[in-house]
Simulated scan of single mutants.
Amino acid sequence: MSTLLSPARAGTALTGRAGAAVAALGDRARICDLYDADGSPVYHDICGTTGYEVKEILAALQGAEGAVLDLAAGTGRLTFPLLAAGFEVTALELSPDMLGLLRTALAGAPEEIRRRCTTVEADMGSFSLPGHYGTILLGTTTISLLPPDERSGLYRSVREHLLPGGRFLLTTVDVDPAGDGTDEDVVLVPAASGRIYAMYEQWTAGADSRTVTVLPQPIPADGPVTVATTTIGVVPAALLAAELDEAGFTLLRTTPIGGPDGSRHHDVLIEAEVRP
């Protein structure tokens, strides 16, 4: 991941129901970023094993040749399905805490899986690797973690590392422009550990960022409570398509990603290739 907020800055973003829930904790609240040493286990518990967007990504990779570069691989949520599908995968991740969880998971995997995976600590916004790839993937709408002035570095690095005819796959949110005012969704999320988390997502129509806050449910009766939060950008699909075109990519197709019924914000998978 890239451009992560510090815990102090993340804490200042809390308003609405998320802010009220944290304020009720008083000095029991231990605010951290969702991607730092304290927040990474929470992220992995919630997202580390979910199959969200995996089906669409693997379908797009049918018949693809060459190795896959999994950008901002996190704890390996997409890396392991790619390995299971038979690909050689390089998993690139900036957060050492996330990368540590991924490497621990790899250490427990069969040797045949381990030997096809290379892990690299690097920034998706600007990277230089010795190899070239048939597919470069940036999933989990992680493009939203890069501010506009850093996305040009991502596009340049991708162009430099794609094999001729290779494809760039990335997911982003397709924001419903009909919304107005402040949108705050709260959902209960069952995690791999059996824990339940309340996930608050706050976004104001037209704003270029949204805040995600995660608290355990039920709240423990006493003791410190980890509050994992972060503020990430909103990069609508139409904006991303325009940026890719300007960066020298041809848009091949856009595929909706299945999500909860009734949601106003849907994710999409964008496939692009370098323009000759």
Score class of each variant (00 low, 15 high):
57 I>D: 01
2 S>R: 15
239 L>A: 12
21 A>H: 15
275 R>T: 14
254 T>W: 05
236 P>G: 03
161 H>Q: 02
76 G>I: 03
144 S>R: 00
132 H>T: 08
225 V>S: 05
131 G>H: 07
144 S>N: 10
234 V>L: 09
61 L>I: 07
90 T>N: 04
76 G>Q: 05
161 H>A: 03
218 P>Q: 09
263 S>F: 14
10 A>M: 13
254 T>N: 08
41 P>T: 10
234 V>H: 06
138 L>E: 09
243 E>H: 14
188 L>Q: 01
58 L>N: 07
202 Q>R: 12
177 P>K: 09
238 A>F: 02
153 G>A: 10
124 M>Y: 00
49 T>E: 07
14 L>K: 15
194 G>I: 01
27 D>F: 07
106 L>C: 03
8 A>S: 15
84 A>Y: 02
109 A>T: 03
119 T>W: 04
93 E>T: 01
94 L>A: 11
23 A>F: 04
226 T>S: 08
241 A>S: 15
38 D>W: 09
235 V>G: 14
60 A>N: 10
74 G>C: 15
113 I>P: 03
200 Y>T: 13
237 A>T: 12
146 L>M: 00
160 E>I: 03
43 Y>C: 06
33 D>F: 03
218 P>G: 12
222 D>E: 10
5 L>F: 04
80 F>W: 07
131 G>N: 09
32 C>D: 14
262 G>M: 01
274 V>H: 11
259 G>D: 08
272 A>D: 09
130 P>R: 00
17 R>A: 13
276 P>T: 05
87 F>P: 04
105 A>Y: 00
164 P>F: 11
129 L>G: 04
148 P>S: 13
128 S>F: 00
181 G>M: 08
2 S>V: 15
207 A>F: 04
20 A>M: 12
165 G>A: 05
230 T>P: 04
33 D>A: 00
183 D>R: 05
134 G>I: 09
249 F>G: 00
202 Q>L: 13
170 L>Q: 08
67 A>K: 14
256 P>K: 05
229 T>L: 03
15 T>P: 11
108 G>H: 06
44 H>Y: 13
20 A>S: 15
94 L>W: 12
156 R>F: 05
145 L>D: 14
140 T>R: 05
157 S>P: 02
31 I>L: 06
227 V>C: 02
234 V>Q: 01
178 A>K: 11
202 Q>G: 11
124 M>P: 12
48 G>L: 06
138 L>P: 12
32 C>F: 07
154 L>R: 11
128 S>V: 11
94 L>H: 03
33 D>M: 01
73 A>G: 08
259 G>N: 10
110 P>N: 01
20 A>R: 04
2 S>A: 15
253 R>C: 10
237 A>V: 13
20 A>L: 12
235 V>N: 14
56 E>Y: 10
135 T>C: 08
177 P>Q: 06
66 G>F: 10
144 S>E: 06
216 P>L: 05
159 R>T: 12
118 T>L: 10
58 L>D: 09
217 Q>P: 02
252 L>W: 13
52 Y>Q: 10
203 W>L: 06
